[in-house]
């Protein structure tokens, strides 16, 4: 601690070493500046730098918080809270209508909103809901999440079939006079605010592989879908 690190003189230190350290500092800070400046949107050049050239360094040390939403909300409908519910059933071969439900698990199923443990579930559900939306739809993403989440919960609950449902709860506007009819202004947790954005059957087949089948289009699976739009009257409000 008292050797190279504490060389005291203002002029001191080896000039060559100082030059090398200066170069390393510049390279490091340049990499950090580029990845942070392109955290939300990237040009083609930034994308090339961040994902190809800098990635072995900035990604490994997590200097690139690319997947972390520091904006918290952008005011889009897709930024509203979403949750994942998994209904568990014992028999993989019988349809769910023909058997009784073992249990229903709504994620997050515990924890505190102060400590980040529930946030992980919200982030996952948010991704699922986002990828279930028509404009940003990606069925590979939603089915991958459905299969993986259901596989774990089926194992925990000794089940072989599950129904995975992703539900988004629209938030109330500040001005309640702009609420659409059908949304109770005094109950922001009323089911009218909830919309099922994704629903799939997941089961473990005879080869012990987890299979997922999206049930149908959102309009068919969610009777409340007419109310699934933002409860605001005006889109921009």
């Amino acid at each position: 601690m008292a050797s190279a690190g504490s060389k005291p003189s203002g002029d001191g230190g080896d000039a060559g070493l100082r030059s090398i350290v200066s170069l390393l500092l510049f390279i490091h800070l340049f990499c950090v500046a580029v990845v942070l400046a392109s955290n939300f949107r990237r040009s083609a050049l930034q994308n090339e730098l961040v994902t190809r050239i800098f990635a072995p360094y900035t990604q490994f040390f997590d200097f690139d918080p690319n997947l972390t939403p520091y904006y918290y909300t952008l005011g889009r409908e897709s930024d509203d809270d979403a949750t994942i519910t998994v209904d568990l059933y014992a028999d993989a071969d019988k349809p769910v209508a023909a058997q009784s439900q073992i249990s229903s698990i709504k994620l997050p199923d515990g924890g505190s909103n102060w400590l980040g443990d529930r946030k992980r579930y919200f982030r996952l559900a948010h991704l699922m809901a986002f990828r279930a939306d028509q404009e940003t739809e990606n069925e590979d993403t939603t089915s991958e999440i459905a299969r993986s989440v259901a596989a774990r919960l089926m194992r925990e609950g000794q089940a072989r079939r599950a129904v995975v449902r992703c539900t988004r709860r629209s938030s109330q506007p500040l001005d309640l006079t702009t609420l659409r009819p059908g949304y109770p202004p005094d109950r922001p947790t009323d089911p009218a605010y909830d919309a099922t954005v994704y629903e799939a059957d997941v089961w473990i087949d005879e080869d012990n592989q987890v299979q997922a089948l999206k049930r149908s289009s959102r309009a068919e699976v969610a009777p409340r879908q007419t109310g699934a739009q933002a409860p605001n009257k005006g889109a921009g409000s």
């Binding site: 949107r41 904006y71 952008l74 949750t83 909103n113 500040l174």
Partner: peptide, 24 residues
């Protein structure tokens, strides 16, 4: 800078939207 992309941070409603999330 990442907040500047969202309308809610411009029109002053972002904090309300966070307060209105009944689950999180």
């Amino acid at each position: 800078l990442s907040k500047l992309y969202g309308d809610a941070w411009w029109d002053g409603n972002a904090i309300w939207i966070l307060l209105a999330q009944t689950q999180s």
